[in-house]
Computed example of a mutant assay.
Amino acid sequence: MKNTIVGVDLAKKVIQVCKTTNRTVRSNEEMTPDEFILFLANSKPMTVVFEACGTSSYWKQQALLYGHDAKLISAKLVASVRPSQKTDKNDALAIVQTALLPDVNFISGKSIEQQQLQSTMRLRELCSKQKTALSNQLIALLAEFNINSSNRNGGLRGAIESTLEDAGNGFSHEFRKALDEAWKLYLTVAETLVTYDECLEASIETHPECKKLLKLEGVGPINAINLYIALGCAELGCFTRGKDASACIGLTPLQHSSGGKSKLGSIGKHVKNTVIRSQLITGAAASVRHVIKREAKTCKEKWIQDLVDRRGIKCAAVALANKTVRTAFAMLTQGTEYKANMILTS
């Protein structure tokens, strides 16, 4: 297993497999998915390295099933190592070369349960965007006829229903039918979004790890599932510290060090987990606004109040989200429950 390393470049219909032993290339050939399954089943235990992509988690699970040591590696890192033109053979070879680099960071794969939760989350995100887009389109189209929707007249529902029922506004039958279909589509999307939320809440009951995370400040069903998806493989050693997990999500300040001088900046705009980070900060901000309105009961609430006094609500929300990720990492790796330290009163 230590001497044989296989670099796998995944594609939709073909898979490029580069097999090396003692840093010597033994073969670099193209296989179909069925042939690759047979290759895994008939090979002795070895290290199989996949370039992270849409299907890499599935193939990692298959490699582990056949007793191999499977790992995922960043496609960006592989591209920086590849010395020549981009071909399937060069990519597979570059994957092996990248895996041999010192202190290389591999990417955590996902289990089948995590993939299912992530797929449901992606469906919900798309449905939420579609609902917002349909709502904005209907509001804008009605505004062209000087029909405004506000809470006083029942919102968007009231504006559309009154428009369809008003026989004297001069709208044609075809336009009324199109507007009615658009409103029905909006209602269908809204009902679908509610169904997705119910599915996610029901999934939490079947995942004890997610249920434990609900005790954290600013963590609801959505954030609990996000943390479980991002950190669920923490016990496999993908992150060595909670700080690394928080940095992966994008909640630690950017660092620029040169000449023995270190300078910390903001958390940065361009990160891979923008949706997770945004939702964690939003939940943390809601918790911060709730804490500053009353007397602190725990040591963390006292820390939040002092931080708000020094740096403001936004900075405190980011700091709380950072602490939440670290605490969640410790809970998942150590199997512990969250219990806030209460302030002792005399």
Rank of each mutant, 00 (worst) to 15 (best):
C127N: 04
F239P: 10
A70M: 01
K293C: 03
N341Q: 13
A234V: 03
L156S: 08
R82G: 08
V288E: 01
D91L: 03
C233I: 15
L164H: 05
M121N: 05
L187N: 12
H68W: 01
K13Q: 15
V17L: 04
E295K: 05
K215D: 15
L193I: 05
A319H: 01
G109F: 00
L65T: 14
E30R: 10
L64A: 15
K263N: 11
E217F: 15
D306Y: 02
L307N: 00
T333E: 05
A11C: 00
A99W: 02
M121L: 07
R23L: 14
M31P: 07
G158P: 03
G109A: 01
A340T: 05
G170W: 11
G154F: 01
V104M: 00
T195R: 06
L77F: 12
L117Q: 05
L134T: 10
D91Y: 04
I112S: 15
F329Y: 10
T282P: 14
S111V: 01
S258M: 03
S257T: 10
K60M: 13
E217P: 13
F171M: 12
I107Q: 08
A296T: 08
A178Y: 09
G268Y: 03
T87L: 06
F145K: 15
E144F: 09
Q116I: 12
A234Q: 03
L332E: 02
S56T: 02
D180Y: 13
I147D: 13
F106S: 05
K212C: 09
V14K: 10
V8W: 09
N146C: 13
R311D: 13
C127E: 08
L93N: 12
R311L: 08
E165M: 13
D91W: 02
E29I: 09
